[in-house]
Write a protein that binds this DNA or RNA. Structure first.
Lengths: 268, 268
DNA sequence: TAAATAGTGTCTGTGAGACACTATTGG
DNA sequence: CCAATAGTGTCTCACAGACACTATTTA
């Protein structure tokens, strides 16, 4: 097979040797990670935020994240950042969406690939990072930190977008408080929560948010917290039955004060 | 409120005026679009490919795509590219996944945001672009073009990835033919097909692949083609019933030679 | 001992899966 | 006229929704 030559008479090897990618303007690309956990009594979702020590949004809170390096995938960048901020490894990480709107970052043209991470406990993390209460209810999202005294509230409204013959439902957030998240990070949270809710019941993601063993009342509390609705005990137990196995022991639930059967996740 | 100053004593305005984003190396970012349609008799999926007239992969086929411009979103870039290649507007477009593996593009550090587009007919498109048969069966994907004589075949195997306590199932493609797609575009096709199949039944995406009116036998053929399995007539009709409305007319199905009731999509 | 929680039994409706059947029509 | 296709009826089964009930236990 004769070597192919392009309109300038170059072979592929010659082309690549002379290739320069500076003709097109290039964006910066970051990863941002929504790290979710639950509090001790499984009554509130927790989200990991970092306080920005640089402009822009100096002093405001933001999702952990950072620039991707040329020798790593976005996934690896997210895992690295998560490890740097929390010390956690081998965590459930899911690519959610890539945000590209011009103007979303005042520094210039910056895209962000958003990841969702689920971790078992709000463990101690590096200075400057902290866990915040995340409350999601119909029509509103609130993010509050006890120590920092920060209180962020967003009104959520459903908006409908038409595209050809397809109708999209989207949530749009409006700030209704003094404090606010940096950049478009509230949008990342909304997108991630919507995606999490739609897949949570039919996946095993929940088990990443508890320890090795757990009780069914605790597990149910977790599902109810993430899904934002109450479940019937019988139906819930029927649903998780094929995924779990009794260890034979009895432990105290995190939620309530009574002993109940200890279960563990069945790895498939 | 006194203006916040960072550790260099700069206000946000001063910081941004002096900000330069050239400290970090930046990737190029493209969009690639998997444009799917069906043939006249709804017996084969069709995919739009363009013949590359530049290195790398000169002369090979690739998904349509291109670099994102600084003043547009990735969605707008995908819609623009699709319009340039096919003339179509207001088309269903869905962000699938962002591919970031180092080395996926021999020109250097190039990420790609993949979009899926569903269009009603394999309409005439610009020179250099053409519609190919796309056959997906358990264990294999084949892409073939009559005029071009191109025949691409990939063996698909299931691979299992473990991540924490979560197990991922993924398809991995191995080329088993002389011809091949450019870059990692076979991976984009696989990801998109998987996502399409998982959402197709419970969304209204199918209606983007037919005209204003259609018959139920045709619609069922389309569902069977995309999902890759046969459906029971009764169950299928019960499922689409709330989404469609009889016009009262009778037209010929595209699939078979008998008249049947004409339906249209109910816009909600 | 009483209120609260763990755990089970079971009735219902819905929707998918699976066939069987009748009606219609194009060749 | 008959083979193929359009269209309908209905049985089953799995599963989620919804309560009711018993057993146990901690405060």
């Amino acid at each position: 097979m004769p070597e192919k030559r392009d309109k300038n008479g170059l072979t592929e090897k010659e082309f690549l040797e002379n290739y320069t990618d500076t003709i097109y303007e290039k964006p910066s690309v970051t990863v941002d990670i929504l790290v979710l956990s639950v509090d001790e009594s499984i009554s509130k979702l927790k989200v990991l935020l970092v306080k920005r020590d640089e402009h822009p949004y100096l002093g405001q809170f933001a999702l952990p994240g950072g620039f991707i390096k040329p020798d790593e995938t976005a996934y690896q960048a997210a895992a690295r950042k998560l490890n740097e901020d929390t010390g956690l490894k081998d965590i459930y990480l899911d690519q959610i969406y890539t945000f590209t709107k011009p103007g979303r970052d005042p520094r210039g043209w910056v895209m962000s690939i958003a990841y969702l991470a689920l971790v078992p406990d709000p463990i101690e993390c590096r200075a400057g990072a902290g866990w915040f209460d995340l409350e999601i209810e119909p029509g509103a999202i609130r993010i509050a930190g006890k120590e920092s005294g920060v209180n962020m509230a967003y009104k959520i409204k459903d908006e409908t977008f038409k595209n050809g013959r397809i109708t999209y439902e989207n949530w749009v957030a409006d700030k209704v408080s003094g404090d606010a998240l940096s950049f478009d990070h509230i949008e990342i949270i909304i997108e991630s929560i919507l995606k999490l809710r739609s897949s949570f019941e039919h996946s095993d993601q929940a088990f990443n948010m508890v320890g090795e063993t757990f009780t069914l009342p605790d597990m149910q509390a977790l599902y109810e917290l993430v899904l934002g609705k109450n479940l019937y005990k019988t139906n819930f137990r029927a649903m998780v039955a094929p995924k779990v196995e009794a260890t034979g022991g009895k432990i105290k639930s995190r939620t309530k004060g009574k002993m109940s059967a200890e279960y563990k996740y069945i790895e498939k």
